Simulated assay, not measured.
Amino acid sequence: MADRTAVPAFTSPFAPPTRFAVPGRIAVSGEAATAWQTATLTGIRRETPRAATFRLAVPRWAGHLPGQHLMVRLTAADGYTAQRHYSIASAPDDSGHIELTLDHVPGGEVSGWFHTVARPGDNVEVRGPLSGFFAWPGDRPALLLGAGSGVVPLMSMVRHHRARGLAVPLRMLVSARSPEELIYARELGAETTPVFTRSAPAGVPVGRITAAHVVSLLGEESDDGWEAYVCGSNGFAEHASRLLVAAGRPVDRIRVERFG
């Protein structure tokens, strides 16, 4: 699971009515967090050579906040089970569907099944939404920093921002090894600045996210109203967090989720 930092509390206008409090963060439905339900795979969309989006119909889905995740459980014929936590990629809506974008992890039991075995009509079990820590309900300016598949929960925030026509500023800085490995490349818009670490289009510098990237996105608006959301590997999360602190972001305004 992801490491998390302490943050000030606030409540969400989208939270379900039956709730328990995540320390320092948004209240989450206790009933939804503990109940497994059946989800049916309805579509698969290729994002990059290693990543794909899987659309699931979940008729009893209680709704979620951008940035939340869920648990997926697979059960084999002999009763063996495997389960993993995955961020929700889709924006909250009332369609009864959610989307997960998964990297094909070498040797991964669950991601391997999704990428090599799963077909529309297959069923899995899901439990969630889980954790209000990393959730962004759209009530304050947000700077999003992601690397690789760390862009997934951030894309839920971007989609929510667009779907609701929110006026609060939202900007995203995303790192990928190459344009071919940039997840959601076809969907990214003016709110997103991509950075490429291994190969880039002609005229675009290659390298890591820098302090200059962060400062340019915050500009003169770097006041206490902005929150930063960071998602990626341990190394990326630490690097991005240091840049944010150097740019003047208060530690209690930086939310971090990391994997690996």
Rank of each mutant, 00 (worst) to 15 (best):
D3V: 14
T5H: 13
A6R: 13
T11M: 12
P13N: 07
R19T: 13
F20P: 06
A21E: 14
P23N: 02
P23V: 11
A27K: 12
E31F: 13
A32H: 05
Q37G: 09
T38W: 02
T38P: 04
A52P: 02
T53K: 02
A57S: 12
H64D: 08
M71P: 07
L74M: 10
S87P: 03
G96L: 11
E99C: 01
T101V: 06
V105C: 05
V105W: 08
G107P: 04
V110L: 10
V110D: 08
P120L: 09
N123D: 14
V124G: 00
E125P: 03
E125F: 00
V126Y: 06
L130I: 11
F133C: 12
F133W: 13
G138D: 00
P141N: 02
S149Y: 01
G150V: 04
V152C: 03
M155T: 09
M155S: 01
M155Q: 09
H161R: 04
R164T: 11
G165P: 03
L173D: 01
V174W: 02
R177S: 15
E180G: 13
E180A: 15
I183V: 14
Y184G: 07
E187K: 05
T192N: 01
A200E: 05
A200S: 10
P201R: 09
G203P: 02
P205W: 08
G207C: 01
R208C: 09
H213N: 15
L217G: 01
L218P: 03
G219C: 05
E221T: 13
W226K: 00
A228F: 01
C231K: 10
H239C: 08
A240M: 06
S241K: 08
R242T: 08
A247M: 03
P250S: 05
V251D: 13
